[in-house]
Amino acid sequence: MNNEMPNKTEADHNKNVSQNNNSSKIIKNSADLPEFETNIANMLLDKFDKKLKIIFIKKNRIKVDVHKDNIVEIAKFINQNLKFDHAESVTGVDRPEQNEIEVVYHLGSYDPSISNQILALSTRTVRESIPNPGFDKTRLPSLRDVFYSVEFHERECFEMLGVYFENHPDNRRLLLPEDWADLPPLRKDFKIKGR
């Protein structure tokens, strides 16, 4: 479990779930937290206990943070048991202060019972100060075998932030020119000229 979790979502009106890192406990239903979403979070906590951390529970939205070693296993469980069947987007977020790149999968479902839910599954990887996309330590396991729909999203994430997805069948450039030789453009150290 990654203990150095940045407090980025600790805000006033995000209903944060206080959770002890040493002994994960089932979240109690309270008036603040929506019931249905809490039940989904509890199913995840039941199964994986300390391997994941619930960041927030809001109406129709749950965010879960996992270590990159466990993400494939947890994603498989989410796909098979919780009926989340596709990924809506894959977002890479550069966090130079923590020396990390966060990747957030927004998973959705077409099953009528939970089709209004979005489960955000986030994980982190090392950020290299001088990136060498594909050859450095900025790597994550690909979720393409679990959620087929992430294929193009992960390709975009690789070119925009330099996160190499292992076991992804196709890591070519998608939106950038093939001869792009600058930093990955969505890193914070890539500056727009004149701004």
């Binding site: 407090n7 980025k8 979502t9 600790e10 805000a11 965010k63 927004h106 955000a120």
Partner: peptide, 16 residues
């Protein structure tokens, strides 16, 4: 805003 994040979606002409 504070240190918060949000994911909102609507149905556009081309889907979500």
């Amino acid at each position: 805003a504070g240190n918060v994040e949000t994911y909102k979606r609507v149905e556009s002409g081309r889907g979500s």
